[in-house]
Simulated assay, not measured.
Amino acid sequence: MTNQPETGASTYPPSADFAANAHVDAAKYEEMYAASIKDPEAFWGKEGKRVDWIKPYSKVKDVDYTYGNVSI
């Protein structure tokens, strides 16, 4: 048995070595995704602190979906 994806497959499994060295496994990803959906501002506020910013952000979420004034 080979580790090759089926023809037409839309996902490709990583090598065992790559998966063993990953920072996040499937369970952790699901946990993080659920947290990002439940409270996006808290999640991205925390994750944003992992980045070195020239000027720290003052607002986590700044979007407007008003007709004619959409900004992200």
Rank of each mutant, 00 (worst) to 15 (best):
N3Q: 11
G45V: 04
Y33L: 06
D39T: 08
I72C: 13
F18L: 15
N21S: 03
S15G: 15
A9P: 03
A34T: 13
V51F: 05
I37W: 07
K38V: 09
A35R: 11
M1A: 15
V24M: 04
P40L: 04
A42C: 07
F18P: 03
G48P: 07
T2Y: 05
P56Q: 08
V60R: 09
S58C: 09
V70P: 01
F43P: 08
Y65D: 04
V24P: 07
K38R: 09
I37C: 04
Y29L: 13
H23P: 02
D25Y: 12
G48Y: 10
T66M: 02
V70Y: 12
Y33D: 10
H23N: 14
G45D: 00
A9V: 09
M1I: 10
A22E: 06
E41Q: 00
A16M: 07
V24R: 02
A34Y: 05
D62W: 00
I72K: 01
S15P: 12
S58H: 06
A19D: 03
S10V: 15
W53D: 09
W44K: 00
A22F: 02
K38Q: 12
S71C: 13
A20C: 09
A16Q: 04
S10K: 15
A22P: 01
Y29G: 12
Y29M: 08
M1W: 04
Y67D: 14
E47N: 00
S71T: 15
S10A: 14
R50K: 01
E41G: 04
D25M: 09
K55N: 13
K46H: 08
V63F: 12
P5I: 01
A26L: 02
V24W: 08
V51S: 02
T2N: 10
E47H: 05
M32I: 13
Q4F: 03
G48W: 05
D17L: 12
D25K: 09
V24D: 09
K46T: 12
G45M: 03
I72A: 13
A42N: 06
E30A: 06
E47L: 15
I54H: 12
T7A: 15
K38L: 07
Q4W: 01
I72S: 11
M1S: 13
N69S: 05
A20D: 08
M1P: 03
A20K: 08
K61M: 15
P56S: 06
I54V: 14
E31M: 01
W53Q: 11
E30H: 02
E6R: 13
S58N: 14
V24I: 06
D52S: 11
V63Y: 04
D52M: 07
G48A: 02
K61W: 13
D62H: 10
Y65F: 14
S36L: 03
P5H: 00
D17T: 01
A19W: 00
K59W: 03
T2I: 02
I37P: 03
A27Y: 00
D52R: 13
P40Q: 02
G48K: 05
A22H: 08
K55G: 07
Y12R: 15
E30Y: 00
N3H: 10
